[in-house]
Design a protein around this nucleic acid. Structure first.
Ligand SMILES: [Zn+2]
Ligand SMILES: [Zn+2]
Ligand SMILES: [Zn+2]
Ligand SMILES: [Zn+2]
Lengths: 140, 140
DNA sequence: GCAATTGATGTAATAACATTACATTTCAAA
DNA sequence: TTTGAAATGTAATGTTATTACATCAATTGC
């Protein structure tokens, strides 16, 4: 269940993609990332998708399913469930006005969904929790 | 916050789309629905997307973000949070082997996420909870 | 009855997101 | 130094969703 994964040294493409995402305020689509990296020799979507796959596997990047977009992990150092990037289920609050994304982990929610799964004999592999709405600033 | 919505009589296209989804065991993409409805005069994706938009608005259909697909609501009559289809946040467990989808509502999860939002001044408009994994049968 | 408005529909074209297939390169282990 | 695994480059294609515009149908106000 979302076992921590080691994150080896990144390849050149992985580093480029991660740096773009990490410097971005907002989530980015694969194609937006591609455009940002044309200057660095990127020519095709697959170069981005391959890097994103690995970064996601390493837990350094998350895919926002409701946006078809990606963010660098903001769940940095350790936490309650697993160390470093090897976190358990994480949730996102996504502002539909300014695109800001807040990443958080809620133990109670995680356990509650885990209990539900157990009660149904369901074996979770990945859980998505995304709250769309307005951040404090934009709601004011 | 996810206020109940009245569901007026459906139009012809809405009825066709809903019936296809309602009879399906598994979630369907808009294009799969389109193919099922060619015989009934459907020719273009927009006919499906427009119907899906309305059905979603009525709470009769849900979009599964992690699948880019749609299911008929299985949350039928009333429930704790709002009557009929006008439900609060709902969660889905999606079997990656047999495609079966279980729709459920968990009060505790809903309130916990609501509390988090309140504590951050975040105003939720829509919350997505999707658990991918293996159903009891497929996990055996 | 007959505009005027509104919502639904039909159709084509295009945009946005993602994968398959195959050739080539890199690099560390044997 | 062979060789095998992982990464990369490139093109083509597949899948999902929207924009733009024309037409049609039901309702409302006159
Ligand atoms: Zn994270
Ligand atoms: Zn905001
Ligand atoms: Zn439902
Ligand atoms: Zn199953």
């Amino acid at each position: 269940m979302n076992a921590p994964v080691s994150s080896p040294a990144l390849t050149k493409n992985q580093t480029l993609v991660f740096d773009v995402l990490d410097r971005s305020e907002a989530p980015m689509s694969a194609y937006t990332i591609l455009d940002k990296l044309r200057d660095h020799g990127f020519r095709a979507p697959l170069q981005v998708y391959r890097a994103l796959d690995k970064l996601t596997e390493f837990g350094m990047v998350h895919r926002l399913e409701s946006l078809n977009a990606f963010v660098a992990c903001a769940h940095r150092e350790s936490s309650c469930c697993g160390a470093g990037h090897g976190h358990g289920t994480v949730a996102f609050a996504i502002c539909e006005s300014c695109s800001q994304v807040m990443e958080f982990h809620d133990h109670a929610v995680d356990h509650r969904l885990g209990d539900w799964a157990k009660s149904k004999g369901f074996k979770p592999s990945k859980t998505t929790i995304e709250i769309r709405g307005l951040c404090q600033t934009c709601a004011a």
